[in-house]
Amino acid sequence: MSTADDARDVDLELTALPRRSNQGVWPRFRRHRLALIGLVILVVFSVMAILAPWVSINDPLRADVFNIKTPPSRDHILGTDSAGRDIFARIVHAGRVSLSVGIVAALISSAIGTILGLISGYVGGWVDNLLQRFTELVMTIPTFFAVIILVSIVGASIWNLMVVIGFLGWTGQARLVRGQVLSLRETDYVTAARAIGGGHGRLMFAHIFPGIVPYIVVAATLTLAGAILTEAGLSFLGLGVRIPTPTWGNMMNSAQSLHILQHQPWLWLPPGIAISATVIAVNFVGDGLRDALDPRTIIE
């Protein structure tokens, strides 16, 4: 049981220090064993997604009416789906869609959240008040519901999904960044920079922004996990990316009868494991980064 304890010991050690330790981020991250496992899983899945056509011999879109729902065999190591398409090939190719939708959406969310949080925290006053109320407003509607409505309006192409999920997932990030900016704004080094005549843009981006980067990075991992889950949920319901383009979510769409659930587990178990493993890996990496980037526990 030394894995997380190691990280936490580091945690404790560093909490006592007034400033961030000189020890680099990577050595601290490396001591968090679960985070390393997570990183390995993510690298493997990403490489498989990038090299998809070479990793799987079979074509993920080729239907084969003579081999519908066949169990795993030598030709199809994870079996075939309800149109006779190779499941392993689809899993590998689905990684491309699921991961890129998640990553782009998380980038959009992080960018919006960071910018709004920076402005809100730095400018303060009525601007802050307005942005805060707006953030609360967006938080009141369940994200998944808002995504469903918007996607049903603009249509569920891969690009639309990225944008819609990205545009609705920034609230947590914005609140976090705002809080950090508020505390950094009053620090001595920012006051000093202001005193020697630093402009607002310079204060925000050259002085305050670097201080909140660790927080942004850790929060972005949470946002990424959420974006991957949202896309998967939408596609599972048939409201996201449409078949035949494979995503991990829509591959599980076929598992909507107890018969398939019980007798053809190769249809739904592999994509389910792929999503779960990816999101678990992202969260483990986030946990490790949190311990490595900042000695204090910064967000939960």
Partner: peptide
């Protein structure tokens, strides 16, 4: 952390 990571619908399929 694992509980937070598993998609609700996958967990539902396993339970079913």
């Amino acid at each position: 952390l694992i509980g937070l990571s598993i998609p609700t619908f996958f967990f539902a399929l396993l339970a079913l």
